[in-house]
Amino acid sequence: MSVLVVAEHNNVSLKSSTLNTIQAASQIDKDIHLLVCGFQNDEVVNQASTLEGVNKILQLNDEIIQHQLAEHVSQVIINLSKNYSHILAPSSTFGKNFMPRAAAILDHSQISDISGVISPDTFIRPIYAGNAIATVQSLDPVKFITVRTTSFEPVEIVGGSASIEKISLNLEGIATKFLDRKEAKSERPELGSARVVISGGRGLENGDNFKLLNEIADKLNAAIGASRAAVDAGYIGNECQVGQTGKMVAPELYIAVGISGAIQHLAGMKESKIIVAINKDEEAPIFGIADYGLKADLFQALPEISKELDLLNDIAK
């Protein structure tokens, strides 16, 4: 049997979460099909056709499913499900919206947010906000799965050559009307879902100095976070707090600046893929979990980082 991956896209471009999901799928079975449903989505199909590991693309191009509402996407999946042993989607707000719905209609359970594949029916997933890791086995004939994207490397965007199959379905009308979609107003990505987070702590010494982080955040398209100590000291608002009592984040890159690494803070970011710590105190506990530690005065290091990033960008150009 084959694995069906539901592509996340906005009818214009493919979201990177799809690449991580395909990686997870490839650990289950090599025959991977990608479902691209939407409207006027040729460009997305184009991008997807060269993805490493994808054998076939199922393209559904229908105005009725332009906004990919859960009621519609689940109908599509149910229609296709008999051909697949596994159906995967990223564990984003996109995948989490329709996957349980599709599973339930077929009287199947669903496995959320897997972070590892042990075998085709056994998976690893974090529970209790990552404070415990469960190994779970699915007893259902078809496995409906959402994938924690930060746990799987993205597949290469070139090297594959998928066949494209256009499908059409008679989708039922639904009791939901799409009104609008607003991209987040802030130019910065949302803290909870940003690919890069740069956080400041007490070491920044005051609220004004938090602006030193902005420049780097702009260059990395990062969200700005803070330790509880910095929030308590009034340097920055509550909404930026990362930690046990703040937001839990798991970006690909987490940069902790002037944060000692109180365990309350670590609890909120230890799931990050790469952690960088910059602190002048080499005894700071944050170094104990950082992939890359830099012992430095942050007031010198931050401008340097900014400069180095410019250099990188120049080279790229």
Partner: peptide
Amino acid sequence: DKASSVYLTGTNHAE
């Protein structure tokens, strides 16, 4: 350290 210790107490005060 104290921070890891306090963490185990489950202490919280509404912000």
